[in-house]
Design a protein around this nucleic acid. Structure first.
Lengths: 251, 251
DNA sequence: TCGCAAACTTAACCTGTGTGAATGTCTGGT
DNA sequence: ACCAGACATTCACACAGGTTAAGTTTGCGA
């Protein structure tokens, strides 16, 4: 269940129109590598990725860098605009991206006009937190090959869902260097690892496309358990998230 | 700024009374090692740690375990009760703990009666997410000695704040084995690392107490930057978190 | 106060992953 | 069709941290 499908399901037609209009009105393009947000800044906009991929990352003083999360098309980067005074991480474009940047005033008005929107945005944060936890165990406990395989499973599942059988293909906009920064490995070792995965016929990877011939096999290798993506729970978002973030209003 | 200080500041006296009464009414004790929540369960209560420490963790099928987060006294474990259908991680008592377990009905009523409470709880989730990000870069990029030092800085700062100068002492309820599970190292290597920190006079650690003679020195060694704890931002919680999670009502 | 389990320490050895550097190969822009 | 820069690949070597297996100390419950 993608973020867009959740929006479709939970927003009223009018709410959805307002949201879409706001996104379109505030869409901007950036070349790859552009920093959208820098650590320590005061968040000034609600950002939603419309095309391309965006990374959240942190750096140590000596330059070591860790990618914390990937934001795929359709997803909001974060809700820091509404919550945080100084951002604790940076956000940048992995490749050329289109991002909607909705300013504070408009974003606040939008949420007030669309009672269900806060709820859906809240849900996206909940899933993002679960993904962050999975990345923690990924980096902390899995071996190199498991880490890379796990990340590939996640990226596939977030775009295509978990296939009932067999496999498929999806976008994979990371260079091996970025894959290394996301998994806590070095670029050289990621290369070894990707080749090992190729040798085992677990994945094909070229031209920014990832092909997984047998998803179940890769998932086994990675000890991938898709539960943390909460893909099947969106139907229940309404009754659950409602009390905290907002209220359903289908009038 | 501890969670309790935020509560003091943002709740009305009546709200605070309701909250405290609810905590007291639902307090329960558990011996160390008790699982409070198991991965895959439906969350049934809002849990707040009253004394002792609690860990959130995930396990791989073969038993490898990663501690994801520590919940210290005064803090809520999570808001999964309001948001998630099936929990994606487990929660257990690190040592003997007292935990308030507020059932769904009571928790929902409480939030409806206390408009500011949702806001404060939301803030705790925001900080927890920031901590999770820091743990990710900790495990992904720092060396063993940096990881351990960083975690010690965090635990100290969450209890005592960042000392202006010099150092101090605080509780440290983790065994070296748990320290290993939290940092993605082995127990043996954690032991080596702790001794190296002792040798450098960076910390003293015994009897579940951590003594840091010179916090600035340890922070330098760990590349510790307390910004992610958002310790100084609580004053601004109200105007920020308000629009999303709730509304200030000091009537 | 004893006794046992949990926690910590030490040691010898091993391996997965990091380093640094050179070379090869795409690919998108013009 | 070509070129420049970005990516991927390969190699030789180093070392941080893992593994296994004993000890030794500590602290708590009976």
């Amino acid at each position: 269940m993608t973020f867009n499908q959740i929006l479709n399901r939970l927003l009223t037609p009018r709410e959805r129109m307002n949201w879409e209009a706001s996104l379109a009105r505030n869409a901007r393009e950036y070349p790859k590598g552009t920093d959208l947000v820098r650590e320590g800044e005061r968040p000034a906009a609600l950002r939603v990725v419309l095309s391309g991929w965006v990374q959240k990352y942190k750096q140590l003083p000596d330059g070591r860098r860790q990618i914390l999360a990937l934001v795929l098309p359709g997803q909001p980067c974060d809700l820091d605009l509404f919550t945080v005074v100084r951002t604790d991480h940076s956000i940048s474009a992995i490749r050329r991206v289109t991002v909607a940047e909705i300013g504070r005033q408009e974003a606040t008005a939008l949420i007030e006009q669309c009672p269900n929107l806060a709820m859906v945005l809240g849900w996206s944060e909940i899933v993002a937190a679960a993904v962050q936890r999975e990345w923690t165990i990924n980096i902390g406990q899995r071996s190199a090959i498991e880490r890379v395989a796990q990340l590939m499973c996640e990226i596939f599942a977030r775009q295509r869902g978990v296939p009932a059988a067999g496999g498929g293909e999806c976008d994979f906009l990371l260079t091996q260097w970025q894959l290394a920064e996301a998994t806590g490995l070095t670029q050289v070792h990621v290369n070894r690892t990707v080749q090992e995965l190729r040798r085992r016929c677990a994945v094909e990877l070229r031209n920014l496309r990832l092909h997984i011939p047998d998803f179940a096999q890769l998932a086994r290798l990675a000890a991938f358990n898709p539960a943390y993506l909460h893909l099947g729970e969106a139907d229940l978002v309404a009754e659950r998230v409602g009390p905290l973030f907002g209220r359903i209003d289908r009038s």
